[in-house]
């Protein structure tokens, strides 16, 4: 009798917890149904350049242009990927530190921490975010700068082999925003 009762109690308890789990999964499934309107651009590749102890900082002007058809409130996030290659002049030179820094509108949002620039390709990433409010059919500009900083005086060169920017626009408009409505330009300072 006692065994039967404990089996019944265990069964009820399992059923109770299964019901809770099913409720939780259904809640998550319901909340995760729709995503926000996001338009992501193809990566915009920047030109290759070289840094050294003589040129420890390179700044690029980055302009992100939105031309929405309707009034738009959006948050813009910019992902940066950089592949660097360190070539020491002498064997045993200290490995330099390299970092990316967003200034201007994206200042302080997220800078990649300085990392060792190993004598092999190393990928660095940085991300910045900014909120913009744009008027319909007017060019809406976000002007900012991306700094490439070498924290070292070690003899040798750091080749910025590849670097690219990908812009994601999360907007509150019920309409789609095509990639054509977002533009990026990069210019040397």
């Amino acid at each position: 009798m006692h065994l039967s009762k404990s089996i019944t109690t265990a069964g009820a308890s399992i059923r109770n917890w299964t019901a809770r789990a099913a409720l939780l999964i259904a809640c998550i499934g319901t909340v995760a149904t729709s995503e926000s309107h996001t338009t992501t651009t193809s990566p915009f590749a920047g030109p290759r350049f070289t840094m050294s102890a003589e040129q420890q900082k390179v700044t690029r002007n980055v302009t992100i242009r939105l031309t929405p058809q309707k009034d738009l409130s959006a948050s813009v996030s910019v992902d940066t990927n950089v592949r660097i290659e360190w070539t020491p002049e002498e064997e045993g030179s200290p490995i330099p530190r390299f970092r990316l820094n967003w200034v201007g509108s994206l200042h302080g949002e997220s800078d990649a921490p300085a990392e060792d620039a190993q004598p092999r390709p190393v990928n660095h990433q940085a991300q910045g975010s900014f909120h913009m409010t744009c008027k319909a059919r007017q060019e809406c500009l976000l002007e900012t700068q991306l700094e490439f900083i070498l924290d070292s005086e070690a003899p040798g060169t750091v080749e910025i082999a590849d670097w690219d920017l990908t812009v994601a626009v999360y907007h509150d408009s019920p309409d789609e925003l095509s990639q054509r409505d977002i533009g990026i330009t990069i210019a040397d300072l």
Partner: peptide, 8 residues
Amino acid sequence: PPVRPVKH
């Protein structure tokens, strides 16, 4: 990230 309205 800020609160972002979903697609509908």
